[in-house]
Amino acid sequence: MDALLKAGKEYVCIMHLHAEIPISKIHKASKEFIGKITQLPPVKSAVKRQLREREIYYLEILEIKEKDVLFIVGCQAGTYIRTLCVNWGRALGTNAHMAELVRTKAGPFKESEWYSLHDLKDAYELYKTENNDSLLKKIIKPTEFGISHLPKIWITDNAVDTVCHGANLNIPGITKLESEIKKGDNIAIMTIKNELVGLGISELSTEEIMNQNKGLAVKTTKVFMEAETYPHYNRPHYSQPARNN
């Protein structure tokens, strides 16, 4: 779940300005909040109140009606939209507050795939009473869906069980990997069948993994697959070198 908390988010928000401001000024000021910004988390917040840098990937005004500004914003995890509204208001020479907020994306989860508790109940009833799992299968997605935004490394069948036991992933266990992996990235460790084995932190970049034949590639941080799903791999037996007595 941590993988999701750290993923980028998209919100749709209504900011309420405390004074009427010309539309062109609001648009112009919005540009200042795209890219790297610094924020002081709000007084009531879950984190320590100290200035921190966050990235706004996009910010687009959808509609302005008198003092209300409807906008969509894509941002790094941990961006306070409440604070963004306050700062945007200040940049306009007035005050502003966040009136409404809806999250429309969190990592791979998008608004179009939201379901309500009623949907869940209906789907489960259909399954229980008529043995029809078509609705339920649409709603409950494999765990793999929740990490689909992470870069992936696929491992050989032989390497699966050791990772299941919490071992780190070494280069010889890798069969395929995605490009653009950097050292320190959160990585999803997958089987060739595209099952999630676990998560880890990359110790090497894609290029380094491609160019080296041994060594530590990924430090395993969380295991999802149950041990013994794949067989335990016994190293080929090598005979002991003869000793000179």
Binding site: A7, G8, E10, H149, L150, P151, T175, K176, E178, E180
Partner: peptide
Amino acid sequence: NKLLFEQIERKVLVKK
């Protein structure tokens, strides 16, 4: 509009 991870286009490379 794309979030950071959506901006990165990843290819699958075969190691072995």
